[in-house]
């Protein structure tokens, strides 16, 4: 098989792409008339194009659109609301004030000195002192009102002491420890609590 100048193969591709110059086209045509090898090559290329162009049209399955829509991420409201609060501190203060004044907060104000503690199976209560014994792990938050808490074991959650003392030496508390003494702090605690709940409601949307 004789080898022709590779420019003729280039011209064939230019021709197939539809952007061949008149000059190149002329030159290619003349060459093809005299060269069976290049004629064969041109023929094969045309057949290749015809072959690939005969591919059947393919359509997406019927449920395609529906599935895409169902997979779209839901709009994140919580981000928007948090940003809104950050951009409108005055309105946030007003919102907190409403919460502050609401019946649930005021109604729950500890107006008596009664001792109370969150019920947990593995804590020991003696008088007004709550003890988490060594070796015990308490799951969840503990709130002690009008009493003290001694932690010798572990608490997997937050510890809040209202009008009392938190006593611990080697304690392990995974959450936050907070001591609250004043009425204002109690309200603040309730507000934060309420605010976090509010946030939780929005972020769960």
């Amino acid at each position: 098989m004789k080898t022709c100048a590779s420019k003729f193969v280039d011209y064939m591709h230019e021709y197939l792409d539809g952007d061949i110059s008149r000059e190149h086209e002329q030159s290619l045509k003349q060459h093809l008339q005299t060269c069976p090898d290049c004629q064969q090559h041109m023929h094969e290329l045309s057949d290749t194009v015809a072959f690939i162009k005969s591919a059947a049209h393919i359509t997406a399955p019927p449920s395609f659109e529906e599935q895409v829509i169902s997979r779209l991420p839901k709009r994140k409201n919580s981000v928007g609301i948090k940003r809104w609060f950050r951009q409108h501190p005055l309105l946030m203060a007003a919102a907190l004030f409403c919460l502050f004044m609401s019946a649930t907060v005021l109604g729950s104000f500890p107006n008596d000195n009664q001792f109370s503690v969150t019920k947990k199976p593995n804590i020991v209560v003696e008088g007004q002192t709550v003890t988490v014994p060594a070796g015990e792990v308490v799951k969840g938050d503990i709130v002690v009102k009008n009493g003290d808490i001694i932690i010798e074991g572990e608490v997997d959650g937050n510890v809040t002491v209202i009008n009392g003392n938190y006593m611990a030496s080697t304690a392990v508390v995974t959450g936050q420890v907070e001591e609250i003494d004043e009425m204002f702090e109690w309200l603040w605690f309730k507000i934060k609590d309420g605010f976090n709940n509010l946030m939780a409601v929005f972020s769960n949307k």
Binding site: A55, I58, A60, P61, Q67, I69
Partner: peptide, 27 residues
């Protein structure tokens, strides 16, 4: 999605040669 689904799915199918993968990637 409705306007372009067939075009895009077709490209993916031809590129990948597999219906399930084409659907996955086009989505």
């Amino acid at each position: 999605v409705n306007l372009y689904q067939h075009k895009l799915y077709q490209v993916c199918f031809r590129m990948l040669g597999n219906k399930q993968e084409a659907e996955d990637i086009a989505q």
